[in-house]
Structures are given as C-alpha cells and as structure tokens.
Amino acid sequence: MSRIDDTLRELRSLDSFAALPNTLTRLDPRAKILATFFYIAVVVSFDRYTILALLPLAVYPVILAALGDVPPSLIARKLLIASPFALMIGIFNPLLDRAPLVDLFGMDIAAGWVSFASILLRFALTVSAALLLVATTGFHRVCAGLNQLGVPRILTTQLLFLFRYAEVLAGEASRMGTARELRACGRRRLNLGVYAGLLGHLLLRALERAQRIHLAMLARGFDGEMRGPHQLAWRRTDMFFLVLCAACFALARSIDLPRALGHILLGALP
C-alpha cells in the first residue's frame, strides 16, 4: 500500500509550492488559468510533424518553474510517471509511418519517428504547463479562479472537498491495506471478494464521514449554500502577464524561431 502514500505525497508536494511568496503566486489565478489554456491550444495547434517550431514554447514552463521556485526534477519525475499512454499510442507511429521525411546528414529519418518525437514534445509541454499552473497557484486558488471564470460552484465546491478528503480517505485505505497485508501471509494480490469487502468497508466509512461532516456544517449555520467570496483583485500586473504570454505564444506560433536563429547563425559562420 506504499503506492497510496506515494500518491498522497505527490498530491501535497505540488500544492505546497503555491505557499511560497513570489511574483507568480501573487498573480491572479484567472490570469494563469487563461494563459495555460492559451498555451496548450497553441502547442497542440501545430502540424503533426512539427518539432523545431515547438521548441521556443518550452520557455513558458521553464520560466514558470524558475519564478515559482518549483524544482525541475519534480516536474520531470511527474512527466515520466504520466508518460506511458502517450508513449504507448505514439510508438505505433514509427512502426506504421515509415516514409522517409528528414535527411539528417545522409541518414533518412522516417516520418513516424518525427511525429513520435513531436507527440512526446507536445506531451511534455502541455502536461508541465498544467502541473505548473497548480504548483504556482495552489489548488484552492485555482478553484476560486475557475469559479470566477464561470465554472458552476457545485463543481468547484466538489473539487475542494475531493482534494481535502482524498488525503483522509487515502490514509484510511492505506491503513486498511496494511492491516490486510500483515495477515495475508505473503499473498500480496487481492482477489475480487476480498477487494469488494475492503472497498465496501471503505465506502461505508466514507458515507459515515460524509454524514458527520454534514452535521459539522449544519452546526455552523450551513443552509445548502457554499459561501466563499475570494474576491480576486484583477490588477494591472495580471493583465500585463496575460498579454505578454499571449503575445509570446502568438509569436512562437507564427514564426519558426529556431530555424530563423539557425539561419542567422549559419550565415554568421565563415
């Protein structure tokens, strides 16, 4: 059951960077949410064989991680853990799409390899942008921002409750799992009957906890309406951040910067 504890640690570690005082954490969450979405849209809008033109976009996660004091190793580890699906589907490209596309110093590179590399690059860029959104904003404020952007309160409340109690319930699951393993005499794997009993008990506990939380909410005047003002203040810096991001992404989308740079460098060489 150490997997559950690991997952929990992962869940908390990302959120904890948002408590650091820095330029990014002070920004309005809405600015960062909109910038992230725009970024992802730009990244995925490129043609399937694009690699070079995508590279300048890596500057966004790099800057976010630097300004937000988020260690790159953490993001890299999370990317690695999340990568299997993109790898699994992407790896078919080189197998199926063997037409030569690029000639690299006399070596033919198949189109499939190019598109595979492009998939991995897209994956790394989009996922790290999403991870860094949480790491530099904090889940709590992301939800407040989403709420202000028009996401129904029932979902933002749900997200906050989920995040709050994932920790508590996963702790319970982990303890139940440990108790089972200690008596399982080396049979590590769960058969369906034991599994259903384990999850059933966990579910019963969850339902009882929900009842107690509801009582605790009623005791403090809850009437069915979740009130959280989170009056977010949209300041000039937020506008500046958003416009700057949008301009940079648009520039990267319209000009193949590395190729231009390479052209200049090649021209400068004797």
Partner: peptide, 19 residues
Amino acid sequence: DDQLFMGSVFDDVAFGPRN
C-alpha cells in the same frame, strides 16, 4: 478532520461567520 472541510484555515474559520 470532519470539521475542517474548507481548503484553507482562514476559509474554514470564516465558514460560520459567512453563513
């Protein structure tokens, strides 16, 4: 844990007064 259901300590303590 049953009583601290909001996302931050401030919001949790503010839950009652806001209601």
